[in-house]
């Protein structure tokens, strides 16, 4: 039971972080299907830091460096979406899809090349192993309670305040609802959209490293992040693009995802003899059903997905 709570909390924080990322991007008017790819790249950056950290480094530096690099990697990678869809008005779904494929391919190439270089070609696996310093991320040893949970909580509160209590949040949302109105009062729509996309890159990148350090100490990058970016999008839609509701949605999805990881620890679940793949499917099935029930009255930002054109009125 304790394990279930731990995993639920970890997965909930990942889903919350990434869904909040999607939320910022979409509030600025850009659909970010590429969150999955952003997560992969963030995870790659963070895990490489972990891999090369020496065991003697103080825990605080390990945590900060990992988070910093994961966020930076996510932000830089998200610029691919920004440049294509904001500056060059490309189809946002197409570019996002390309970024997801590129994320996995690039991460695999990087990790394999690193492994090949280190072992003179004898190891060409797509795995990064970071078992040596992973424990330094934890607050309570022997559990899954890591510093990341605190980050997630802080960022959640910050997101709420930024969106609803600041000048920036007001302007950002205006760009996603009615960019022409924003432009008419002198707001630079393109700049705000870049900001939205880059924030989503930061949160997505952070979510990526949190995800791949949950319960494991190595990661095989050829599977990306196993659809977690997409689940986060579902969480965002279910959360109606609002931070507080997003957490609640993330809790629900996180619980189902955690069940898949720890169901063997429950006797009654074990006795049911349900194949593992059913547990793997659960979060996706749940999200599909939830979406079917809630999408009719969805309140997506009105201008999302539409490139901003100065000439349009």
């Amino acid at each position: 039971m304790d394990l279930l709570i731990q995993y639920t909390l970890v997965f909930t924080s990942v889903l919350t972080l990434v869904a909040l990322g999607g939320c910022f991007s979409e509030h600025s008017g850009v659909i970010n299907i590429g969150l999955e790819g952003i997560m992969v790249i963030g995870a790659l950056g963070g895990s490489l830091v972990l891999k090369y950290m020496s065991v003697t480094t103080p825990a605080i530096w390990v945590v900060l460096a990992t988070v910093g690099v994961a966020i930076a990697a996510g932000v830089i990678y998200s610029l691919l979406l920004g440049v294509a869809s904001i500056t060059f008005k490309a189809d946002q779904t197409l570019v996002g899809t390309a970024m997801n494929m590129l994320g996995v391919a690039a991460a695999t190439v990087v990790v394999k090349s690193v492994n090949i270089a280190e072992t003179m070609g004898s190891n060409n696996s797509p795995k990064v192993i970071y078992s040596a310093v992973k424990d330094k991320l934890l607050i309570v040893q022997g559990t899954e309670y890591s510093w990341f949970l605190i980050f997630a909580l802080v960022l959640l509160i910050a997101s709420y305040i930024v969106l609803y209590k600041t000048k920036f949040g007001l302007r950002l949302q205006a760009c996603g609802e009615h960019p022409q109105a924003a432009a008419s009062v002198g707001i630079n729509v393109l700049k705000m959209r870049y900001a939205g996309v880059m924030i989503s890159g930061a949160l997505g990148g952070l979510g990526g490293i949190v995800y791949i350090t949950a319960g494991v100490s190595q990661w095989s990058f050829d599977v990306g992040v196993a659809g977690f970016g997409f689940l986060s999008l579902a969480v965002m839609i279910f959360g109606q693009w609002k931070p507080v509701r997003i957490v609640l949605a993330a809790l629900l999805f996180g619980l189902f995802r955690a069940l898949g990881s720890v169901y063997t620890g429950f006797d009654f679940l074990n006795n049911l003899n349900i194949p593992k793949s059913v547990y793997n499917m659960l979060p996706y099935i749940v999200s599909l059903i939830v979406l079917a029930l809630t999408s009719k009255r969805s309140r997506a930002p009105k201008a999302e997905g539409i490139p901003y054109d100065k000439g349009m009125r």
Binding site: K167, L170, R171, Q173, A174, E177, H178, Q180, A181, A182, S184, V185, G186, I187, R299, K302, R313
Partner: peptide, 21 residues
């Protein structure tokens, strides 16, 4: 403007101050 430049989900006040908050 002929077509109002107002954000529908914002309040009147938010629309007025937007840009010079």
């Amino acid at each position: 403007h002929q077509h109002f430049k107002l954000v529908e989900v914002f309040s009147v006040l938010d629309n007025i101050i937007m840009g010079v908050e």
